[in-house]
Amino acid sequence: MSCQTLPQLWLLSDARNDTVLERALSELPRGSGFVFRHHHLMDEAWVKRLKELLEIAERKEFSTLVPAGRVKCAQMHLNGVQGCIAGIYGPPDTPQAGNLPLFATAHDVTEIVAANLAGAKAVFLSPVFPSCSHPGAPSLGPERFRELAAKAEMPVIALGGMTAEKARALCWPRWAAIGGLSPIT
């Protein structure tokens, strides 16, 4: 990461917010985090889109994460720009990729414990609230979210149905969103 502090605000990408990502990234505060997922794209298109968005991310000194399964692809095609990749995003059992830290995903106590054992730099704990990403799936709610977060040995980033209003209501310093930071049309 370009700065030593873990960002408080994170934008995640996917097919739903692709058309508004340039604007969304430009509007985020300097030093935010960006998780470039785009699972819907094949490797060549994925790398092309990542390169386009990294220009904005680098100018704003964002910490950028890529999914564990795409780290080698990113490193092979970024030709020296790979220093802008701050870590990998994935489940706690993700194998380490060189010296890139793991930013784990977790949904329950088992995954929190696994993230602790894996030495994850941070954990994205979700879904805090009902989310468009998983319609109808049960959410943690504020109380269960706090119970699980207390078991984490690393910073916890709230994810799932998050917006600025919900983050304030939750009183949680670090949060992430897809639609809550990039209105999906």
Score class of each variant (00 low, 15 high):
Met1Glu: 07
Gln4Trp: 00
Gln8Cys: 10
Gln8His: 14
Leu9Pro: 11
Leu9Arg: 11
Leu9Cys: 08
Ser13Arg: 12
Asp14Cys: 07
Asp14Phe: 01
Ala15Pro: 08
Arg16Phe: 08
Asn17Asp: 15
Val20Asn: 13
Leu21Gly: 08
Leu21Val: 14
Leu28Lys: 12
Pro29Gln: 12
Gly31Ser: 10
Ser32Cys: 11
His38Ala: 15
His40Leu: 00
Leu41Lys: 15
Asp43His: 13
Glu44Leu: 09
Trp46Cys: 08
Val47Pro: 08
Lys48Phe: 01
Glu52Tyr: 01
Glu52Arg: 15
Leu53Ala: 01
Ile56Tyr: 05
Ala57Phe: 06
Arg59Lys: 15
Lys60Pro: 03
Thr64Met: 05
Pro67Val: 02
Pro67Asn: 10
Ala68Phe: 03
Lys72Trp: 01
Ala74Val: 02
Ala74Gln: 05
Met76Thr: 09
Met76Phe: 01
Met76Ser: 11
Gly80Leu: 03
Gln82His: 09
Cys84Pro: 00
Ala86Phe: 02
Ala86Thr: 10
Pro92Ile: 01
Pro92His: 03
Asp93Tyr: 06
Thr94Gln: 08
Thr94Val: 00
Leu100Gly: 11
Leu100Tyr: 14
Ala104Glu: 03
Ala106Asn: 06
His107Ser: 09
Val109Tyr: 05
Thr110Val: 11
Thr110Phe: 00
Glu111Ile: 02
Ala115Asn: 14
Ala118Arg: 14
Ala118His: 10
Gly119Cys: 06
Val123Gln: 09
Pro127Ser: 07
Pro127Glu: 06
Pro130Gln: 07
Ser131Asp: 09
Cys132Ala: 13
His134Trp: 00
His134Ala: 13
Ala137Val: 08
Leu140Asn: 14
Leu140Gly: 14
Arg144Glu: 14
Phe145Pro: 14
Lys151Trp: 06
Ala152His: 04
Met154Ser: 01
Ile157Ala: 06
Glu165Ala: 08
Ala167Gln: 12
Ala167His: 02
Ala169Tyr: 00
Leu170Phe: 02
Cys171Phe: 01
Pro173Gln: 07
Pro173Tyr: 06
Ile178Ala: 09
Gly180Asn: 01
Ile184Phe: 03
